[in-house]
Amino acid sequence: MKAENNNLQFKTNINCSGCVAKVTPFLNDTRGINQWEVNTENKDKILTVQTDDGISAEKVIQKVQEAGFKIELVSL
């Protein structure tokens, strides 16, 4: 059975390339995250995470908080 790709979106305070660099190892090392990006041009600094079905929004939130940033799930 093929894993589904799911997109999760979060409001964050990741607002510059230095912040993105700081959070990169936390997100890149998390199993279940296929791809991610932060729109630093958006006032809410939207983090979009493409996942397979093996990771929860809570896990993404935990990893971003471990990197030292605020994060909140956006309802789609």
Results as ranks from 00 to 15, higher is better:
M1T: 08
K2R: 05
K2M: 05
K2P: 10
K2Q: 02
K2Y: 03
E4R: 11
E4V: 10
N5A: 08
N5V: 07
N6W: 04
N6E: 10
N7I: 11
N7R: 07
N7C: 05
N7D: 13
L8P: 01
L8W: 09
L8K: 07
L8V: 01
Q9D: 00
Q9E: 09
Q9A: 07
Q9K: 08
Q9Y: 03
F10A: 06
K11I: 01
K11Y: 09
K11P: 00
K11C: 09
K11S: 12
T12Q: 11
T12H: 11
N13H: 08
N13P: 10
N13E: 07
N13G: 11
I14K: 03
I14P: 04
N15V: 06
N15I: 11
N15H: 09
G18M: 10
G18K: 05
G18H: 06
C19N: 08
C19M: 06
V20G: 06
A21H: 08
A21C: 06
K22L: 12
V23T: 06
V23G: 03
V23H: 01
T24Q: 08
P25C: 07
F26E: 06
F26Y: 15
L27Q: 05
L27M: 14
D29L: 01
T30Y: 01
R31D: 15
G32N: 02
G32P: 02
G32F: 03
I33L: 10
I33R: 03
N34D: 05
N34Y: 00
N34F: 02
N34W: 01
Q35N: 14
Q35K: 15
Q35S: 12
W36S: 07
E37H: 07
E37T: 09
V38R: 00
N39C: 12
T40H: 03
T40W: 01
E41S: 15
E41T: 11
E41W: 06
N42Q: 03
N42S: 15
D44F: 07
D44W: 00
I46L: 14
I46R: 12
I46N: 10
L47E: 07
T48Q: 13
V49P: 12
V49H: 11
V49R: 10
V49A: 13
Q50E: 15
Q50N: 14
Q50W: 09
Q50C: 13
Q50T: 15
T51A: 12
T51W: 04
D52N: 15
D53A: 15
D53F: 13
G54I: 11
G54L: 14
G54S: 15
I55K: 07
I55Q: 04
S56R: 03
A57P: 00
E58V: 00
K59Y: 05
K59I: 12
V60A: 09
V60T: 07
V60F: 04
I61Y: 00
Q62T: 10
Q62K: 13
Q62C: 06
K63N: 08
K63F: 00
K63C: 03
K63S: 08
V64L: 13
V64I: 14
V64H: 13
Q65K: 15
Q65Y: 01
Q65N: 13
E66L: 10
E66I: 02
E66G: 00
A67S: 11
G68F: 06
F69W: 02
K70P: 02
K70G: 14
I71M: 09
E72F: 03
E72H: 03
V74R: 05
V74S: 02
S75N: 14
S75A: 13
L76I: 05
